[in-house]
Simulated assay, not measured.
Amino acid sequence: MPCPCESDFRSMPGAHASGWSADQVRQLREFVASAPEDGLPVLDTSELDAGLRDGPGPARDATADTLALALARLHLLGMSTAKQKASWQIADTDEQTDVREMLHRSLAEDTLARFFIEMRPAHPDYAALRAAYATETDRTRKAVIARNMERWRWMPRSLGENYVLVNAAFFEARLAMAGRPERTWRVIVGKASTPTPVFAAQITGITLNPWWNIPASIVREKGGRFAASQGYVKSNGQWRQKPGPGNALGQMKLVMPNPYSVYVHDTPSRQLFAKETRAFSHGCVRIADALGFATALLEGSKTRSEIAATVRSAKTVTFDLASAMPIYLAYFTAAPDADGTIAFQPDIYRRDSKVGIAATRDRDCKG
């Protein structure tokens, strides 16, 4: 029984074979054999081997095309099923990549090696995980690394020139801006019972002295009891909290529209940032040094002193970013630290076991 990744390409409309030389077929076989270096399964090459024996022709070309596209798809999109990826709601724009056209061009230019390298995730974290996977001897840690390599295959190859990456498992937010060293902030994320969802959004602005529109789930949890002395008001059936020292959003909130009502914001409970495990929220992400983070996002348009002055004014003000910036709320339980060494974090949301890895997929592929 063929792997689904192979049969997917056999059934795709408009498929046509390229002209494969014997040397390119042998290269393909080597790439298939080296798939475990990326934590991927070895695909069945029996038909390809038969094609090598039988010599060139349309049948061998079609077999090589099918196998190459299946392998490329594993590198580009991963091996996990839709069910295994259900909680990962970051749209993978790589699904729109015309892999077949890229393959045919690489065959014409005899650049097959570059083609497969370009199918791998481009982020430096993936390269670090891949290098660690090659030398890791502990089976448990090796499996964790493989699962996080797989998660990178679910991410877009390009996250953007400037972006924010929140890793809930590591309780940190990373700001990447072109031409500057990456900066990191501590964050507080959702409790195990109210986990921070995995999704992507666009940051369009920063609101200082924000109002808090209280989610219905929290209203139910509190039984609809909120003290006016703490700034709570009810307007048009919606409970809200006025800006102020005790406001749950603190002094800053990112404007990042999303269907989850999950935001990155400040907090009045800053003592919690000293904790090693920082899973305390209802799902939102609380960020340390929120005004410093806001200053970094507004670099070139607002200074730290201007932002602080706006906060002191107690007025609710939104500053737009010069251009929208993508933010990714993700979940990686293994990632490189500052010196490139792979660090591991507990799987606080118990998501690792749901990520497909090669050993599981091998069993599936044998039917």
Rank of each mutant, 00 (worst) to 15 (best):
A314G: 13
P197C: 09
G39K: 05
L254E: 00
G190N: 03
D98E: 12
P336W: 03
A132T: 02
Y263E: 12
A173L: 07
A178E: 15
D65W: 03
V255F: 05
A62T: 10
A322M: 12
A176Q: 15
K315F: 15
L272K: 03
S305M: 07
S18R: 06
G160V: 08
I307C: 02
A359T: 11
E161W: 13
T97P: 10
D266K: 01
V255I: 11
L297T: 04
Q345I: 09
A72P: 12
A343V: 13
A72W: 02
A82W: 01
I342D: 00
W212H: 04
M149V: 05
M155H: 07
D98R: 07
R151H: 01
S269C: 14
S281D: 10
C5D: 11
A296Y: 01
L165N: 11
I214V: 13
P4F: 07
E95C: 10
S229Q: 08
M149R: 02
G367V: 08
L107G: 06
H123M: 11
G231Q: 01
M256T: 01
P2S: 12
Q251R: 15
A113L: 03
T360M: 14
W211A: 04
Y331M: 09
S229C: 06
L71T: 06
L28H: 03
L76Y: 06
K142W: 00
T66A: 15
L249H: 11
Y263I: 13
V285M: 06
W185V: 06
P210W: 01
R304N: 07
A338K: 14
T97K: 15
R220D: 09
F293A: 07
V25F: 06
P197T: 09
M155K: 06
K253W: 02
P245C: 10
D138Y: 00
S193E: 15
F280E: 07
A128F: 04
Y232G: 04
R10D: 08
C3W: 04
L208R: 11
P124K: 14
D61I: 06
H123Q: 13
A113K: 11
R60Q: 13
A324L: 05
S34H: 09
T310N: 05
H265K: 03
A227V: 01
A68W: 00
D337V: 05
A17F: 04
N209I: 06
A359P: 00
V144T: 07
T318R: 09
Y126I: 03
P245D: 03
I357K: 10
R153T: 02
A290P: 00
H123Y: 09
E306C: 10
T135Q: 11
R225P: 02
P215Y: 00
E109V: 14
G223R: 02
E172W: 04
R105E: 07
E118Q: 13
F319L: 00
